[in-house]
């Protein structure tokens, strides 16, 4: 359904993504693992089209020259030059790094803004679903986004992305800054979302351990290149991956 081929991203002369290809089928969960600065966020921004927007802004402000190469195919169409809004309309929704909750809006309003692309009936249905899957949010509907804890913010960020009616959900470091217990709980929720909503998910994470059990296929990113790929078992049994991510 979704396929990226030979993605290259340059910041000036620095190569941030080097010939990365990845694919994600219907209802699949695909993991992208790597350390800080491996290129995970660059990859997620490129897939969602935000990188096009960043490059345009940098060009206008006379800042960094960002060059994008490669193609992204979604449902048989090349979308690599589509604006972020067009990709979102097609169902590719990014839940960005560091969550980016609207700080001056309440939890409910964050979700409502997320429902921009949804029809009223869809929005109402999804809102109910978000509260069902993330019950802690029901107690804080009126609290401002800026006053939420990390876990609450992450639930809200995923909920907000769900409101946009994704068919392919891109999660960028959903476990960042969360306690181990919440990490495992959230990984389980991500799996549930994929099954119950019929959404394909690409999740980028540095904490591979909680995410590894829920993925169908995964990639290891290192210095901008996809160095290892394989399904869950292949990755877990790869000696390099084992030593780097599972301490064995």
């Amino acid at each position: 359904m979704f396929e990226a081929l030979g993605l290259m991203v340059f910041y000036e002369n620095m190569l941030a993504l080097n010939n990365v290809s990845l694919a994600c089928g219907d209802n699949q969960i695909v993991g992208v693992f790597g350390a800080n600065s491996a290129g995970k966020s660059t990859l997620m921004y490129t897939l969602s089209g935000i990188m096009e927007d960043i490059a345009k802004k940098e060009l206008m402000a006379g800042g960094e020259r960002i060059t994008l190469r490669g193609s992204i195919n979604y449902k048989g169409r090349d979308i690599s030059h589509d604006k972020p809004s067009k990709r979102a309309k097609a169902g590719i929704i990014l839940c960005p790094e560091r969550r980016r909750i609207f700080p001056e809006s309440s939890v409910l309003e964050n979700l409502k803004i997320g429902g921009y692309l949804a029809k009223p009936a869809q929005a109402a249905e999804t809102l109910e679903y978000v509260f069902k899957i993330f019950p802690p949010l029901t107690k804080i509907v009126r609290r401002l986004g800026g006053f939420l804890s990390g876990g609450e913010q992450q639930m809200l960020a995923i909920g907000r992305a769900l409101m946009a009616q994704p068919k392919l959900l891109l999660l960028d470091e959903p476990l960042l800054g969360l306690s181990p217990a919440i990490q495992y709980w959230l990984a389980k929720s991500i799996k549930e979302i994929a099954e119950e909503r019929g959404v394909a998910i690409i999740v980028a994470e540095q904490y591979a351990r909680p995410i590894m059990p829920i993925i169908d296929y995964g990639y290891i990113l290192e210095n901008g290149s996809a160095v290892v790929e394989g399904d869950k078992d292949e990755l877990m049994n790869n000696p390099d991956v084992k030593s780097a991510y599972f301490g064995a």
């Binding site: 969602s48 089209g49 935000i50 927007d53 604006k83 972020p84 809004s85 979102a88 309309k89 929704i93 990014l94 839940c95 960005p96 980016r100 909750i101 609207f102 700080p103 001056e104 809006s105 309003e109 409502k112 803004i113 997320g114 429902g115 921009y116 692309l117 907000r160 992305a161 409101m163 946009a164």
Partner: peptide
């Protein structure tokens, strides 16, 4: 601004442009 679809989208855009972009709101 607080109760219509366009108004809420504007409010989102005002607070965090990049987050609004990910939700399909066109700047």
């Amino acid at each position: 601004v607080n109760h219509t679809r366009l108004g809420l989208a504007l409010k989102g855009m005002a607070q965090d442009e990049r987050a609004a972009l990910t939700l399909g709101i066109d700047s």
